[in-house]
C-alpha cells in the first residue's frame, strides 16, 4: 500500500478509536467517587492478616498471586524467546575464542566516568538487594529490585568492557538461576496443595499479633518475592547479555 493511503486509513481508524475511548472515559467515575472497595478491604486485610505493610506486594504475591505467576512466566518466556531469536546459528566455535573478542572499551569512557561508575556499582547492588528484600514493607519488591540489580553488570560494561561483563556473568548459570527462580514460584504455590490448601495459599509462618511486622512476617510473600527477584535479575542480565553478545561478537566476526 502506498504511504498516503495507509496514513489515511490509519488516521480515520485512529480518530474513531480515540472518539470511542473518549465516549467511554467521560462515563468513568471521578477521583472522588471512585469505587474503591477493593482498596479499602486490602488495606485492612494486609496488615492484620498478612503482616505486610506494602499492600501492592500483598496483592501481587498473595491475593492475586496467581496472576503474578503468569506474569513472571511471561518475562521468563520472553527472555527464552529472545535467546531463541538471537541465537547464533552461523557462528563457528572458533570465532568465539576470547582473544577474538576484545572490543575494548564499549564507549570511550574517561577515567573520571569510570571511577564514578565503578564507585556506583556497589551502592547499586546494595540498593537492588534492599529493594528486593524490603518488598513487603516499602514500595518495591522482586520485580523492581531485580531490574535494579540487573543494571550492575551493565554499569561494569559501560565502565570497562563486555569482557568484564562476560567474566562476572555466565550464560549457562544465568539460565539455570532464572529457571530456578521461575520454577520456585510454582513450587511454593504447589506446596500448599500438600498441606490440603488451595494453590498459592499462604502456608508459611506468619507474624503473630497486630504489630508483628518485619522482613519475614508475610509467610510465603517474602519467599516468593525473593524468588521473583532472582528470576528477574537473571532474566534481565540474560537479556542484556544476549543483546550485547549479538551486537559485539557479530561485529567482530564480520570485520
Amino acid at each position: 500500500m502506498r504511504h498516503p493511503g495507509r496514513m489515511g486509513i490509519f488516521f480515520t481508524g485512529a480518530a474513531a478509536v480515540a472518539a470511542l475511548y473518549a465516549l467511554s472515559a467521560i462515563r468513568l467515575p471521578g477521583p472522588e467517587d471512585v469505587r474503591g472497595e477493593y482498596m479499602r478491604i486490602i488495606n485492612g486485610e494486609c496488615v492484620t492478616f498478612r503482616h505486610v505493610t506494602d499492600a501492592v506486594t500483598a496483592v501481587n504475591f498473595d491475593f492475586r498471586g496467581f496472576d503474578t505467576l503468569g506474569e513472571e512466566f511471561i518475562l521468563f518466556v520472553s527472555v527464552m524467546g529472545t535467546l531463541v531469536l538471537l541465537r547464533q546459528t552461523d557462528a563457528k566455535p572458533g570465532a568465539w575464542a576470547p582473544d577474538a573478542l576484545s572490543p575494548g572499551r564499549a564507549v570511550g569512557a574517561s577515567d573520571a566516568l569510570r571511577v564514578w561508575i565503578l564507585a556506583m556499582t556497589g551502592p547499586t547492588v546494595l540498593f537492588g538487594i534492599y529493594t528486593v528484600i524490603h518488598g513487603q514493607l516499602t514500595p518495591g519488591g522482586g520485580f523492581q529490585g531485580g531490574v535494579i540489580l540487573a543494571t550492575a553488570p551493565l554499569l561494569l560494561y559501560l565502565a570497562e568492557s563486555f569482557d568484564v561483563f562476560r567474566r562476572i556473568t555466565s550464560h549457562r548459570y544465568l539460565e539455570i538461576v532464572e529457571a530456578v527462580g521461575a520454577g520456585a514460584y510454582g513450587v511454593i504455590g504447589l506446596l500448599a496443595l500438600f498441606r490440603g490448601r488451595e494453590f498459592m495459599a499462604n502456608i508459611f509462618h506468619l507474624g503473630k499479633g497486630g504489630n508483628d511486622i518485619n522482613l519475614f512476617s508475610g509467610g510465603t510473600i517474602p519467599v516468593i518475592n525473593a524468588a521473583v527477584g532472582i528470576e528477574v535479575t537473571a532474566g534481565f542480565v540474560l537479556l542484556l547479555y544476549a543483546f550485547l553478545q549479538e551486537m559485539l561478537e557479530r561485529k567482530e566476526a564480520g570485520s
Binding site: D54, V56, T131, P139, G140, G141, F143, Q144, V147, I148, A150, T151
Partner: peptide, 11 residues
C-alpha cells in the same frame, strides 16, 4: 505508584 516508577526508571 513509586514501585512502578522504580521499574519504569530502569526499563
Amino acid at each position: 505508584a513509586p514501585d512502578v516508577a522504580l521499574s519504569q526508571l530502569v526499563i
